[in-house]
Each structure stands twice: as C-alpha cells, then as structure tokens.
Design a protein around this nucleic acid. Sequence first.
DNA 1: AGCGACCTACCAACCAGTAGGTAGGACTTT
DNA 2: AAAGTCCTACCTACTGGTTGGTAGGTCGCT
Lengths: 200, 200
Amino acid sequence: MRDVILAEATDLFAEHGYDGTSLNDIAAGVGIKRPSLLHHFPSKDDLYGEVFEQMLSHWLERVEAAMALPGSGWDRFSDVLSAGFELFAEHPSYVRLMRREALDGGSRLGIDLVGVVSPLFNTAVEWIDAEIAAGRFREVDARQVLITAYAALLGYVSDAPFINGLLGHDALSERPMHERCEHLLDLFRRLLLPATDVIL
Amino acid sequence: MRDVILAEATDLFAEHGYDGTSLNDIAAGVGIKRPSLLHHFPSKDDLYGEVFEQMLSHWLERVEAAMALPGSGWDRFSDVLSAGFELFAEHPSYVRLMRREALDGGSRLGIDLVGVVSPLFNTAVEWIDAEIAAGRFREVDARQVLITAYAALLGYVSDAPFINGLLGHDALSERPMHERCEHLLDLFRRLLLPATDVIL
DNA sequence: AGCGACCTACCAACCAGTAGGTAGGACTTT
DNA sequence: AAAGTCCTACCTACTGGTTGGTAGGTCGCT
C-alpha cells in the first residue's frame, strides 16, 4: 500500500505541484480516505519528502551507473546523455517534479537539492576540463555546457503539455523522443568536438 | 494602485505559483486588506489573468520588434535571441511565470498560451527553413532548434535559484548573464552555420 | 489478545469572496 | 459660499468551503 500511495503521490505532485495537490486527492487516487493515508505517512511534508528522495535516488542510481561506464571523450558524454534521456522518457513525472523543485529553489524540505547535485556537477565539470586538456574536446566553458544540457533535456520533457501544442502531436511518444535525442546528440557533438572531427 | 497590485501579484505568482499565493499575501505586499484588493479586481482568477496577459503582451511586443528588424541569416537569429535574453534578464518573474504555466499545460484560464505562441513558432520555423534553402543555414530540424532555444533560454533564468547553488554565485547578475548569452550565441552559431563559416 | 489497516467525526486554520459601513475628495445644486 | 450628492478607496465582520491533522472506534487476520 505504501508503494501505491507513493506512486500516486509522485504523479499528482508532479502534475499539480505541492500546493495544488491535497491529501484528499492522493487518498482518493488510491481508493482510501485521508486519515487512512496519514496512517502510512505522518504528514504531507513527510510524504512529499519520501516522494522526492525516491525520485532522487532513482535518478542518481542511473546517472552514476552511466558515469561508471568505460570509455572517454565523446562516446562517454553521449552515453551519459542518452542514459539521462532514457530515464526521463520512462518517468516524465520525475522531470516535472524536479523542475518544480528547481523553480522553488530546491528547499521545500530539509532535502538540500543543491547539496546532492553539486558533487555530480563538479565531477562532470572536471571531467570535461580534463577532456579539453587531452585535446579531445574544444575549449568550452564546461559549466555553461552542462547547464545547457540540463535545460535542454529537462525543458522538452517538463514542458511537454505546452510543446505538444506547438508540435501538434504527443512530444513524449517514442518517435518524437528519439528525434529529440538525436538532435541533442548532434548539438553537443558540434559544441564539444573540434571542428575537424564534427563532419560526419 | 491597480498597477502596484499587478506588479506585486506578478512577483508573487512567479515566485510561489497560483496555488501557493493567497490574495492575503498580495494585499499585504501592497499594504492593504484583501477586500480592498477585490475592489480593484473582481476575483483571483481575473487578477491572475491580467498578470499573465500583461506578461504576454510585453513579451510579444519585444519579440515582434526584434523580428521586424532588417537583416537575414545569422545576424537576424542572433538579434532575436539577444532581444529575448535581454527581456528575460530585465524581468525574471516573466520567465518563472511562463515556466509555471508551461508546466501546467498553459490552460489555467481562458488564455490559450499555445494559440498565442504557435503563430510565432511557425513563422520562425518557416524562416529557418527558408534560410536553409538559401544556403545560409545548415540542414537542421527547425522545430528542434527552436525548442532547444526556448529550453536553454528559459531554463537558465527560471531555475536560477537552483543554478545559483551549482555555480556558487548569483546567476542573474550582469556578468554571468553576459557569459550565458555569449555561450548560447556560440552554441547556435555552431548548430546553424555551415562548418566552413563557423570558425572565427 | 494483539496488531495493522481502515473508517467516521471532529478540530483549528486558512481560503476566496460578500455585505455593509466609513472617510474624504469632487462635483453639482441651491 | 454652503449644502447635498455622488464616487473611490478602504475598512471590519462575516459566509461557506477546504485544508492538514487528530481522536477514537471497527473490522479482519494471525
């Protein structure tokens, strides 16, 4: 039951935000009443906290697995980007949740979003700088590249309802997602690789 | 007084969202009581509607002005991008408001966000395609490029509280904003221009 | 008997919105 | 000039409804 509640809460918090989701909504979604829900989770804050922690741990798990893969240079960058994209395609709710938290400054709870992501961010910055030093990447501002990657990946998925309207079809279905991924890979290849290596 | 309320409401809706902002908060922010606020605006929905319409009209005004500028090819793209960036730098609240609305599907009110933005989007797609046909741009998927521009521009500003934490300094102050703009210009130059024109 | 899962019934706090009244400035009428 | 009439901007006090959370009881299973 806990897991069912957690899943329903993840969807609703992602869809309508913390303030836009009532415990009644979540309880009704799993077919019980609010007090029964509060039997499993002590408070709304705690429930949200668990939702967010679960999301973060799934996310970290994937990213760390992708970063642990062997390889260097463009292949490695491409692997990590694809892994992130794949996770987001599987769990759009995670993206929307993350975006909402980032909008609110990532400090709704005791959870320190920045504290969790910062080490990963810095590791990635150092890796890119090392690749530049090794001559495998162009001289770019690693931080800017990573922020662009973050924004371009998240934006497409988090704003899917809006982008659906612009494109006239479901942005999250398989083919559009694949095209989006190809576009991003092409984009970062052009951004990162020396001009001589870009031409395919 | 109406304008003061509108400005305060814009900030609070942008910062905490529709559900996270009470009429009491807004009224207190301008130093009056809720009923006095409702003397100027008939309801919370109406107030939000005016806030959003004002934001949209400011935004459209700027973009249309930038699109009306002469020039073609990269110079024109660069002008429009810079104009957008400048507006966002001046009014970060607009970006956060827009992002929240995009997250919610852009249909909180009668305002049809997609309906307003779609014509602009399609005009831009056609323009890029024409530039490609004229040989001034590479063969790219215009829609993907525009969505990336949208995401990369908005993401940096809307998630500023989070990005502040990653970078360790104020992402919205003048120098970082300038660096961000330069990075984006470089990015899209590499993405859009034929390989032979990219090298500076 | 004990325990986990669920319930109804309640609470205080807050929400958007309404009713009705007051102070003061402006504009007309005498 | 004085008096009466409006109007705008604000107020206090209230309504009905929803919120998160609690108290206490019931059911079925081990």
